[in-house]
Design a protein around this nucleic acid. Structure first.
Length: 161
DNA sequence: GCCAACGTTGGC
DNA sequence: GCCAACGTTGGC
């Protein structure tokens, strides 16, 4: 039997890369580069598997909220932007032989018809324990429980999708 | 623009 | 290994 599908949430600042940017990609696929936090790196490298579904979350946005759903199409591999001195996320400590940072590829499934904003998420009892809503939570790659995933799909009018 | 909450860095 | 200083995140 295949491993159970897992669920994640990926934060992005829409001013640098939004779900609309993802939708505009020729294959609606992108590599999720630029993550420079060890806990998030470990998830990207070790835990996210092909077929896992992810929420795209717009952070530092007006308004902030969950914007849509994507699926993992390529499991963790070295984030080559860390090797590029001209890249914003360049890290001289990451090398090709000993890569420090990782990324996955994700393909858009759908953009929500309306963004599910933070206050609405906070109001929802079923989401009480969600990592995103924890005080001081800053992790840019987070696990999401199936129950939470289904709850948010429902809020978005995409139950069962 | 403010600032709380974290994570990282670097002196010791 | 401690911890103060600094940088970043991200909601408001």
């Amino acid at each position: 039997m295949a491993k159970a599908k897992k669920y994640w949430l990926l934060k992005t600042e829409p001013t640098s890369y939004s779900i609309q940017d993802l939708a505009a990609e020729p294959t609606q696929t992108t590599h999720w580069d630029g993550v420079r936090n060890y806990q998030a790196r470990n998830i990207l490298r070790d835990e996210m598997k092909r077929g896992d579904r992810v929420f795209i979350y717009h952070s530092n946005a007006k308004p902030p909220g969950v914007a849509g759903v994507a699926v993992v199409t390529q499991e963790g591999y070295p984030d080559f932007t860390a090797w590029d001195p001209d890249d914003k996320h360049y890290d001289p400590k990451s090398s090709q032989t000993d890569p420090r940072w990782f990324m996955v590829d994700v393909r858009l499934e759908f953009v929500f018809e309306r963004l599910i904003g933070l206050p609405e998420l906070r109001e929802c009892a079923a989401l009480r324990d969600m990592e995103l809503l924890r005080k001081g939570s800053r992790l840019s790659i987070q696990p999401v429980r199936k129950k939470e995933f289904d709850t948010i799909l429902k809020l978005a009018g995409m139950a069962g999708k």
